[in-house]
Write a protein that binds this DNA or RNA. Structure first.
Length: 278
DNA sequence: CCTTAATCCTGGAAGC
DNA sequence: TGCTTCCAGGATTAAG
């Protein structure tokens, strides 16, 4: 579900709500969504490893990956998969919502909850941000929000795959998923099936600029809510209102009114304008 | 390298 | 109304 803009929106509201807060207690309701540190892989993660007693001092993101950092150096990696959410909410009476897997009770009377119905996401415990980066982030390409034309050009030149496949490849550029790959390709006028290495300098510049501006605009709109995404404050995003192609197969192109085409590309539903995208 | 298909899951929507 | 099928913001793995 969440791509870079959704994860960045969550990061920002976690920072706003939780920076400097202390975690009083952690409750794990589904241990299998949590992976303990590499040194103690055969044990379940302890509450300490899940940040109990720690003061939250930083919220970092690379691509679609989040890291929660604490004053004493502990670090928790989070990935939201297709349906995951991290939400800060008041502590109320009654049962937890379905699929609430981990609950952090915070000083000051609120809690942070990790929910993930499909459980494609997860949490990974580390003793330091260094360890987290080494274990979880080394294989990620540069962050897509600020991707440089030269970076994109190098990745495209080195590949014999379709343009959309390279955009979706987190090793090449981190953060672009199915929605924003289609939106960026449309904004740049590039057909999703164009061989990546066939793009010229002007096209690569346009595509890199499109990736940056499409993602930045979506961040500003609080991300896209297609089905169930909510930010850390529980509110849905608004970026879906400005989608030009995603979810609009068969509808008229916003630029030229030609009906949008759709098919499977790299196993993902892909929508493009047959006239605007060459 | 590259692509394809299968896999991990749940739930909402569409189809009959 | 109820049952079945398909589909979904992701990512890894094995097979060809």
């Amino acid at each position: 579900m969440p791509e870079l803009p959704e994860v960045e929106s969550v990061r920002r509201s976690l920072e706003r709500a939780l920076l400097g807060r202390r975690v009083e207690r952690v409750m794990v309701r589904r241990p299998d969504v949590v992976e303990p540190p590499p040194a103690s892989r055969r044990h379940r993660a302890t509450r300490e490893e899940l940040l109990e007693g720690a003061t939250l001092t930083g919220f970092e993101r690379r691509g679609k990956h989040l890291a929660l950092l604490t004053a004493d150096g502990r670090a928790l990696a989070a990935h939201l998969g297709m349906s995951g959410s991290l939400v800060v909410e008041p502590i109320g009476p009654g049962r937890h919502q379905a699929h609430t897997h981990v609950v952090w009770t915070l000083e000051g009377g609120r809690r942070l909850v990790f929910r993930d119905p499909r459980r494609f996401g997860g949490l990974w415990c580390f003793g330091s941000f260094e360890d987290l980066r080494r274990c979880r982030w080394t294989d990620l390409g540069p962050d897509a929000l600020h991707v440089r034309t030269t970076t994109l050009a190098a990745a495209f030149a080195a590949s014999r795959r379709a343009a959309k496949a390279v955009l979706l490849d987190q090793h090449a550029i981190a953060g672009v998923g199915n929605i924003y790959a289609d939106e960026s390709l449309f904004a740049a006028g590039v057909h999703p099936l164009r061989p990546a290495a066939s793009l010229g300098g002007t096209e690569l510049g346009a595509l890199a600029a499109a990736v940056r501006s499409v993602l930045a605009a979506a961040v500003e709109a609080g991300g896209s809510t297609i089905r169930d995404y909510v930010g850390a404050d529980g509110s849905p995003g608004r970026a879906q209102r400005s989608h030009a192609v995603y979810g609009r197969a068969g509808l008229p192109c916003v630029r030229c009114h030609t009906p949008l085409s759709s098919s499977q590309v790299v196993q993902r539903t892909t929508v493009w304008c047959p006239r605007c995208q060459k």
